[in-house]
């Protein structure tokens, strides 16, 4: 817990715009505004050793009219492997444009592509945002949005 807190403090003191959402043993979640997420990501990778992308998730906060994208990043630095940094940003639902973080973690490419098709988030600078899992002719709402209702329900 202390160590995760220490890591979080490093981020928040270096980048004052970021906010520590929560910290648990070996887990910390930091949210950043869209304009500085890339800098925070680079700082986390180069200075804090979070170099191993685990997965990218999204959350549709329909009541708050926001879409959240969360990058879960692990580490390969010896002694720090168990820690996972969750780096999140929120964008409005009607204009969900975020910038891609492939330049920071190359492995994020397919995860971002998946988040794009499932939430309709637009990753600016992403080389290929075609459908990865959905059928080619999918023309409904992105399925994981809360206002999309599955046809069986």
């Amino acid at each position: 817990m202390d160590r995760a807190k220490a890591i979080a403090d490093k981020i928040t003191s270096k980048h004052p715009g970021t906010k520590l959402e929560w910290v648990k043993p070996r887990r910390l979640k930091v949210s950043a505004p869209a304009s500085m997420i890339k800098d925070v990501a680079l700082f986390a990778r180069d200075s804090l050793g979070f170099d191993h992308i685990s997965t990218v998730s999204g959350v549709d906060w329909i009541a708050k009219n926001a879409l959240e994208v969360v990058y879960f990043v692990g580490s390969t630095v010896p002694g720090q492997e168990g820690f996972v940094l969750a780096l999140s940003e929120r964008v409005p639902r009607d204009n969900p444009v975020v910038s891609t973080l492939i330049g920071v973690w190359r492995g994020a490419e397919y995860h971002e592509r998946e988040t794009h098709e499932m939430f309709g988030l637009n990753f600016q600078g992403h080389p290929d945002q075609s459908h990865l899992f959905l059928p080619e002719d999918w023309n409904d709402l992105p399925p994981l949005r809360k206002d999309y209702v599955s046809p069986g329900r």
Binding site: S54, T55, S57, G58, V59, D60, V70, F72, R106, G107, E109, Y110, H111, E114
Partner: peptide, 27 residues
């Protein structure tokens, strides 16, 4: 194998993300 679970206090998960290893190795 990882899960991102968001709960809003209701009986059902608000968000359930399954981070599967195969998808991580696909790149």
């Amino acid at each position: 194998m990882s899960y991102h679970i968001v709960s809003d206090g209701s009986p059902r998960p608000y968000r359930l993300k399954i981070g599967v290893p195969s998808a991580k190795n696909l790149r």
